[in-house]
Structure formats: structure tokens, C-alpha cells
């Protein structure tokens, strides 16, 4: 079964689950995927999550293509994979991409797709900074923050009732797909839960540290972003969908304390970053 079929099956399965368990009307595929704290992710749910993530990521590459630079893309994938290997979900089919956009931003989708913009890469100074940014996005995937966010939107999950009522036809498959797309866009435009952003910052720092990098890469990126004028349209969406960089630095300062000073001698790998990104 290809990914698209898996995705439709996931949505359809979601509806029947909801109908069968009337006392748990809010249960749907996404709810199942979110699981309860401490619950092991089942193989089927992981495939469904990837199918949803694939649709979501295809929307992003529809908004901006990948930078046509194989060396850069492969480098970002090696760094990203190395960081993801330090996470609790090392076996996801992690995919990393640099999107051809001058805007400064980074995105993840369920299932292990992570994107950074060319505009953000251009503002980074080292592999440790890249690792911090990718670690933040990997954290969103590991903790399934996007699934939680899309579950809150009216575009997905609630549409399940309709499918149960009328059975499944091609039209309704298309309808489910459209609902996912509009829900994903809504999440992209509104942003995730703010507490999830702070959590991803803390986890991003830890993941980069686990991967052997200088822990202060992500804070350095936040300081650089804070220095960009709010009038600069390249940061408009980032600032609209995230807590202010200063607030994120305040939170990281509180959370990092002195704990991470032990690891400051770990490499920043600035030279390798410069060589691999063509600077």
C-alpha cells in the first residue's frame, strides 16, 4: 500500500474507531497516534503518522521547492540524522530538506520530515547552531506536537463523522485529504502550542548536546534572530507563530542554568559547516 493509500486508510480507520466507541467520541487516528504518556507507539500508528506527515510535507514543498544543491541537502541530512539518532525515535525515516526561501524559518511535520529555509541557513555560523535548530524540530516530531495541534483544529478529526455517516467514496477520500491539508495549513499559520515551542527549545539544546555539539548553538541562533528587525518580512511568519526570541532566551536561561557549562568544550564545527554549505 503506498503512502497515499495508507493516509486515506488512516483517516477512514479513524472514523470507524470513533463510531464504534461511542463513549470515546474524540478518539480518532490522530488521538491514537498521540497515545498516552508512556505508551509505546505501535508500528501501524507510526506508518499512519508518516502518511499524514507525507501529505503535510508535500504541501510545504508545494509552497517552496527544495534548494537545488545536492551537497548542501546531503550535509543537512547527515547532521539531522546524527541528531535524530540521539532522540527517542531514532528509527523514523527521518528526512531533512533546505527549502528555497529567503525567509528565516524551520518546520517539521509528523513522521520525521524536517525543513529549514535557505534564509535561515544563511544566518547560521556553525554545525552546532544547525544541530540546535534541527534538534528543536526533531523534538516537535518526537513529542508529536503537530498531531496535537491539528487535532485541535476543526478541519480534521471532526470530519470523521461525515465519512462514517455516508460510507466511503472517492469523493469522500478527497474530502478527507482536503481537510487534512486545510488543517495542516491552519497549524502552519497559527503555530503550535506555545508551551510546545518552549519544550522543543529545551529538547533541542539537549539533543544537540547528546550529539556531541556545543550546547549553546540554539541560544546563539535565537540571539541572532532577535537582532533581526521586526519590520523585516523574512521573519514575519516566524515571529507570528513563535514566542518572542527574548522570551525563548529567558526560558532557556532558566532551564539551562549551569548544567550545560560542562559541555561547552564540545565542538561547534564552524569550519566544516562553512565548507559543506559553500561559504
Amino acid at each position: 500500500m503506498n503512502l497515499r493509500h495508507r493516509f486515506l486508510a488512516a483517516l477512514c480507520g479513524a472514523c470507524f474507531c470513533g463510531a464504534a466507541a461511542a463513549q470515546q467520541v474524540d478518539l480518532n487516528a490522530i488521538g491514537d497516534m498521540l497515545g498516552k504518556a508512556g505508551e509505546t507507539v505501535t508500528a501501524k500508528n507510526e506508518v499512519d503518522e508518516q502518511a499524514i506527515g507525507h501529505e503535510w510535507a508535500a504541501m510545504l514543498t508545494g509552497a517552496a521547492p527544495l534548494v537545488a544543491n545536492e551537497k548542501l541537502q546531503r550535509y543537512v541530512n547527515r547532521v539531522g540524522r546524527w541528531v535524530a539518532l540521539q532522540s527517542e525515535r531514532p528509527n523514523l525515516p527521518w528526512r531533512f530538506g533546505v527549502l528555497d526561501s529567503p525567509n528565516v524559518n524551520a518546520f517539521a511535520t509528523p513522521g520525521g520530515y524536517v525543513f529549514v529555509t535557505q534564509g535561515l541557513v544563511a544566518r547560521l555560523n556553525s554545525e552546532a547552531e544547525l544541530a540546535g535548530v534541527l534538534g528543536h524540530e526533531i523534538a516537535h516530531v518526537v513529542r508529536k506536537h503537530h498531531l496535537a495541534a491539528i487535532r485541535k483544529t476543526s478541519g480534521i478529526g471532526l470530519g470523521a463523522d461525515l465519512l462514517v455517516k455516508f460510507g466511503l467514496s472517492k469523493t469522500e477520500h478527497a474530502d478527507a485529504s482536503a481537510k487534512l491539508l486545510s488543517g495542516a495549513k491552519e497549524v502552519m499559520l497559527r503555530g503550535l502550542d506555545k508551551s510546545d515551542e518552549y519544550e522543543a527549545d529545551r529538547m533541542g539544546v539537549v539533543l544537540a548536546t547528546r550529539a556531541g555539539y556545543d550546547p549553546y548553538g540554539l541560544p546563539a541562533v535565537l540571539q541572532a534572530i532577535e537582532a533581526i528587525s521586526a519590520d523585516d518580512s523574512s521573519v514575519a511568519l516566524l515571529f507570528d507563530t513563535h514566542p518572542a526570541p527574548g522570551a525563548r532566551l529567558d526560558a532557556l536561561s532558566e532551564a539551562m542554568g549551569e548544567t550545560f557549562e560542562t559541555y561547552v568544550e564540545q565542538p561547534q564545527a564552524a569550519e566544516r559547516f562553512a565548507a559543506e554549505t559553500g561559504r
Partner: peptide
């Protein structure tokens, strides 16, 4: 050059062929 602003995301249609390059 416009890129990944709100309008572009609103108007985006999926491009699985581009994603497949990943």
C-alpha cells in the same frame, strides 16, 4: 523573492514530486 509567507502557505498545493527528491 517571495518565500513561505502566509499567502504562499495558504495557496500551496501539494508537490509530492518535489518531496520525493528528499
Amino acid at each position: 523573492v517571495r518565500g513561505l509567507d502566509k499567502e504562499q502557505i495558504k495557496n500551496a498545493t501539494p508537490n509530492p514530486a518535489e518531496l520525493a527528491k528528499l
